[in-house]
Amino acid sequence: MIPGHFTYHRPASMADAIKLLSDLGEEARPLAGGHSLIPMMKLRLATPEHLIDLHAVEGLKGIRQEGDNIVIGAMTTQHELLASDVIASSLPILRETALLIADPQVRYRGTIGGNVANGDPGNDMPALMMTLGATYRLEGPDGVREEAAGDFYQGAYFTSLEPGEILTAVSVPAQPPGHGYAYEKLKRKIGDYATAAAAVVLTMSGGKVATCSIGLTNLSETPLLAEDAARAVIGTVLDDASLKRAAEAAITIMSPAGDGRGPVEYRKHVGGIMVERALKRAAARAA
């Protein structure tokens, strides 16, 4: 399979990349790790006339602490996330999730920016970013803006990115010491997209859930924040009844596609189970 013809651009600065993207218009696409876009180009599901490769752009890689936030450059690969001590100590759920994405070769090339900006409902990082309250840095011809992950996703492959804008960094609030976390992903085989997945971060106080946030992957056209489900467990000791209430509240907002990963009812059912498992495992980890 050979992609269609395109012109290749390799800008060295973000200003040049944005200018190219603005000038070339709708037929231009930024290229990050390429592990979603290149397969789609080979299948001719994507036929951009211009590719703007971001690999040579200065300053798009790296993980740094900025106040209470961990800021991750968009071109940081999943492999680099896994190798980062900052991520391992401050955002361990990011590490747990990255380990469940695709396979080693894909993680060497695939980037966090591409994962969150592509708008693919199957990608794992978007729901996690919503769960963690992350914001995205978007740079375009009119300047820089920050957008909450929760406001970014509008439909499958449809985000609030404006023409000419590039997602350049992800900013994630460092989670408090002693927080519990878990990313539960059901997949048909290693490397697959989720049949259903749930992200949980929570804190416990006196044996009860004090704060909780729950995100859902691949259970709708966009990642979902299961707010009612999280409310259902706050103040409880996570007994079976409250776990069940959380799963039911989460299932209410799921609208997965029926596809090779299973019919709708099945995917909602296992989606509820992922929520229960993630809650239990997160609570067991919380101090």
Binding site: M1, Y8, R10, G34, H35, I38, P39, K42, L43, D53, H55, H79, D103, P104, Q105, V106, Y108, R109, G191
Partner: peptide, 27 residues
């Protein structure tokens, strides 16, 4: 497979294992 699944095209590029069907030669 030509779809980034099978790994038969894996080569080592600058110290990383890469599926060479999912990267352009210009890169």
């Amino acid at each position: 497979c030509e779809t980034t699944h099978c790994g038969a095209c894996t080569v080592d590029i600058d110290g990383l294992s890469v599926k060479s069907c999912t990267m352009f030669a210009v890169q």
